[in-house]
Amino acid sequence: MIKGIQLEGLRIVGDPGEFATKYYNAGADELIYSDIVASLYGRNSLLDIVAKTTKDIFIPLTVGGGIRSVNDVETLLRHGADKISVNSAAIQRPELISEISSRFGAQCCVVEIQAKSIGKGKWMALYDSGRENSGRDAIDWAWDAIERGAGELLITSIDRDGCRKGMDLDLLRRISLRSAVPVIASGGVGSHSDICEAVFEGNVDAVAIGDLFHFDRATVGEAKEYISRQNINVRL
């Protein structure tokens, strides 16, 4: 398992299976596996990790990275993924979203949007782990993805990823307030109160957390207890 800052400077954190088990036992609601360099190398190598994970872990698992076709999705689902997330291939060929959604149902199709701020109230959608600029406005791309059958949006703020300074609330709010599908926020959680802000001010349905837990700065249980005390309805 690796983690970077703004999707760069990746450092090795440890074995993904061990972390998955730790988070499951600590009460995580869902896991997201993201092969963040898959698109760059044109590979899809998460299968073994996915199959091993679902032997002992009985919460939903979303898998992303390098998915280019309906067949890729089918293989991942057969190995135990519950949902898949697409970014790069969907930007290059948006029909992929409707193909996945009509074949496996919208509930299985998460579209990740990697948003990079380019000025006040403006974000571009990037791909290939934030290395390439699609030239598309991130928020327009969100509406397009929903229209095409995305069942959930995973909004990653590239500017905030790994920075521990809070989430991009402006970005999240602009998408969440008008989204017809659930929104998962990612990038920037540095403290428990950042999670609450994303929910109360960003209006999101879920928050994906890496850094805070990966480096043992907090446990899943502590985070949940904190946000529960702030009146956020969460499974304890």
């Binding site: 609601d29 509930q107 069942g151 959930e152 599908v181 659930p182 349905d205 879920a206 499974r235």
Partner: peptide
């Protein structure tokens, strides 16, 4: 208010 669909989560 708009109900987000699908209903996903716990």
């Amino acid at each position: 208010n708009l109900n987000r669909i699908p209903h996903v989560g716990w």
